[in-house]
Structure formats: structure tokens, C-alpha cells
């Protein structure tokens, strides 16, 4: 099992849930994917640390957050989505279309088969 050595500055993101050893903690796999994609985009210079920190805090300080902070990664994904739209990498409309496509693809995929977007019957 790999031991976690945190190298990305994104691990210093505001309020990121951490283990006692200081590693990021994810409750579900999609949270780890969202974190990893953000780390990768930052490594590639798609956005700066400041741009990321601003986008994230804008989401974290929106009213209506859950008291137990269990929606932390929901905010993370919202921040990432907004940032890539602002950078004209995609649009919120395209992300919405793809999100629905993935949902239909999951429903249409029989158990035991990998879920791929091509399984969306409307795609």
C-alpha cells in the first residue's frame, strides 16, 4: 500500500479534510478523482494557485453550506467546473449535457460491465 506523500500545493487548499498524518481524506472515489484532476491541471499550469484558491473559496463561502461540511467536495467540483468554464476549456452547458449523458450511460450498463459514456442510448 502506498504511503501518502503530499507534494501538490493543492493539498494546502482551504478546509481540505485531512487524516491525522496530514494526508487528504476522501469519503468516496469521485472525490479523489476530482482532487487528482485539479492537481494535474495545476501541475500543467492550466491555472495558478491563486486562481484555484479564489474559485474554491467563492464556493466554500456561499450561503447554504452544510453544517457538518459533508458537502466540501461538492464545492470543490463546483469550483473546478466554474474555473474550467471561465478559462473557456468547456462551458457549463457542455458539462451539464455530459453529466446527463453519464447518468443515462450508467443506467444502461448491465452489472459487471464497465460504465462507458458510449453506453448512453441518446449519445
Amino acid at each position: 500500500m502506498s504511503t501518502c506523500k503530499t507534494t501538490s500545493p493543492l493539498a494546502a487548499s482551504a478546509e481540505l479534510p485531512k487524516s491525522p498524518e496530514g494526508d487528504p481524506v476522501f469519503a468516496e472515489p469521485w472525490q479523489a478523482s476530482a482532487f487528482a484532476m485539479t492537481v494535474r491541471l495545476h501541475e500543467k499550469g492550466v491555472f495558478s494557485w491563486n486562481e484555484w484558491a479564489e474559485a474554491l473559496s467563492a464556493e466554500l463561502y456561499k450561503p447554504g453550506r452544510k453544517a457538518d461540511a459533508s458537502d466540501y467536495f461538492d464545492c470543490w467540483v463546483a469550483a473546478l467546473s466554474r474555473l474550467v468554464a471561465e478559462l473557456s476549456i468547456t462551458s457549463s452547458g457542455q458539462l451539464e449535457t455530459l453529466t446527463q449523458s453519464w447518468q443515462r450511460a450508467a443506467e444502461a450498463t448491465p452489472h459487471g460491465q464497465p460504465i462507458v459514456i458510449e453506453n448512453d442510448p441518446l449519445r
Partner: peptide, 10 residues
């Protein structure tokens, strides 16, 4: 899950 997959796709 679907939102993250959408981001990953794009």
C-alpha cells in the same frame, strides 16, 4: 459521480 465523470471526459 456523473459531474466528475463529465469533467474527466471534457
Amino acid at each position: 459521480e456523473a459531474r466528475v465523470k463529465a469533467l474527466e471526459t471534457v
